[in-house]
Each structure stands twice: as structure tokens, then as C-alpha cells.
């Protein structure tokens, strides 16, 4: 049994709802979706019990009717565990993971700016990476945002 299969088995045993959802795409690459309400539990288990002690990045994306947030966890070796959660477009909110990884702050701020996803529990702080005078309701990585149509860009023209 490979290391990936062992991780899959352990997660499925611990969390019944993950059964048959964990995909091993190739050596070292595991992808799976986690229901939002169970995210805290699964994330904490992966970090604390399975020793995924590094976070490569957090990717936010706009997929048709909702936003997906993917956490790329890693530990010594080749395995990258990619956990994905979804949030609705009406009120996109997720919880911060800076309690586990203080270094993830920049990745979360980036999502706040570029996708307009609210991150609960993140302390007040400056913007990243957009300028301070960027319109608050414009989030460039949303699919309905088009370069050239921005208020800010027109202002500068």
C-alpha cells in the first residue's frame, strides 16, 4: 500500500463522509472536497494528527455559481493534500487558518482583495495586493470582472 493510499484510508476511517471522494491523481497529489461545516475538523486533523505542517498556498476560484477555496497542504516528502471547500456567491465567508499557519495571512488577504471572500477571524490589517484606493466592490479574479471596465481604471484614463 502506498503512502497516498494509507492517508486516504486513514481519512476515510476517521471521517465517514469522505468515503469515495478522495482522488489520488498521481504520486503525491491528492484532491478532495470537504463540506464547509466539517472543514475545521478535517483541517485540524490533517495538520495536527497527520503532520501536514506546511501550507503551500491557498487558491480561491470563481466557478460558475459559487467560489471554491483550495488549501494545499504539504509535509516532508512529495505529498500535497488539496482540500477544497465551497462558499456561496451571495455572502462568501470562510474562516481563517492563521491559527494553524500564521504565514497564511497573505494568502487569505489576497483572496479578500481579488475574489471578495470574507475571511472570519483575520485581524484588521492593510490590503494586499491591491492599492488602498482600489474600489471596495471590485474584485478582479471574479469572472464577471473585466479588465478595462473597472471604475479605477477609467478614473486613471
Amino acid at each position: 500500500m502506498t503512502e497516498e493510499e494509507k492517508i486516504k484510508q486513514e481519512l476515510e476511517q476517521k471521517f465517514g463522509f469522505l468515503k469515495d471522494t478522495i482522488a489520488i491523481k498521481r504520486k503525491g497529489r491528492m484532491f478532495f472536497d470537504v463540506p464547509s461545516e466539517k472543514f475545521d475538523e478535517v483541517f485540524a486533523y490533517a495538520v495536527k494528527q497527520m503532520h501536514f505542517d506546511a501550507i503551500c498556498a491557498i487558491t480561491g476560484m470563481d466557478i460558475v455559481d459559487r467560489y471554491a477555496i483550495m488549501y494545499h497542504l504539504n509535509r516532508q516528502g512529495s505529498i500535497v493534500l488539496n482540500l477544497r471547500i465551497y462558499t456561496g456567491k451571495d455572502n462568501p465567508v470562510i474562516k481563517t487558518v492563521t491559527l494553524f499557519f500564521p504565514g497564511a495571512e497573505m494568502y487569505e488577504r489576497e483572496m479578500m482583495d481579488l475574489l471578495g471572500i470574507k475571511v472570519e477571524g483575520l485581524p484588521e490589517g492593510g490590503r494586499y495586493p491591491l492599492p488602498d484606493n482600489w474600489p471596495k466592490d471590485e474584485h478582479p479574479l471574479r469572472k464577471d470582472w473585466k479588465a478595462g471596465a473597472s471604475k479605477k481604471e477609467n478614473q486613471n484614463a
Partner: peptide, 18 residues
Amino acid sequence: SSVRLGYNHRGIEKACED
């Protein structure tokens, strides 16, 4: 100390989608 970045943000990720 605190750091503020983003002055060099060129929107490459968005540009890649087009």
C-alpha cells in the same frame, strides 16, 4: 515591523485566463 506588498501587482493570474 510590518510589511506592505503589492506595488508590483500586474494582474498576471487574471491575464492568464484571457
